[in-house]
Amino acid sequence: MEAGTAEVVRSKTVSVTVNGTTYEREVDARRLLIHFLRDDLDLTGSHVGCDTGNCGACSVILDGTLIKSCMMLAVQADGATIETVEGLAEGEELTELQKSFSAHHALQCGYCTPGMLMSATALLRSNAHPTEAEIRKAIQGNICRCTGYVNIVEAIKSVGETS
C-alpha cells in the first residue's frame, strides 16, 4: 500500500492467555496492555504507578520474559502467554516467595508488591540462588516508597538460600 493511503484500524480482536485461561476480546488499538488486564479482564492485581514506564508496578511475565505492561499495547500481546500476580499461588497455597515476603515484612501498602513478586519470580527462574547485588539489580526497575527495599531484598535472598 502507498504511504498515506493505509486504512486506519481503530480496534482489533486479540487472543491472550493469562494465568492459564485464554481470553478473546475486541480491544481499542491504542489501549495499553496494563489497562487491558485491569479493565477488560478484571485482573486488578497489576497496578499503574506512573506515566513513563519508570515504576514497575505493572510488571508481568509475557512469553517467559519480564515486561512492563504499560509499555506495550494490548494488540501487541495478541497470541501471548502472560503470567500475573494472581496466577502465582496455587489455590489457597501461597508460593515460597509470597510467604517469604510476608515473613520478612517486605510489604507495607502492597501497591508495588505484585510487580516486585513478578520481578523476583523472573529472577529466581533464571538464577535460583542470587546474591544480594543480583537481587538489587533485578528489582532496580521496581519503585517502592514504603519499605526502603531492605526487607524485600531479604525476602528474596531467603528464598534463594532455602530452595
Binding site: T44, A89, L94, F101, Y111, T113
Partner: peptide, 16 residues
C-alpha cells in the same frame, strides 16, 4: 499480607 501478596487488595482504581 495474605490479600496483598496475591494481588487481591482493593485499591480505589480496582473498583468499577
Amino acid at each position: 499480607d495474605k490479600r496483598l501478596v496475591q494481588g487481591e487488595g482493593v485499591f480505589f482504581d480496582d473498583i468499577k
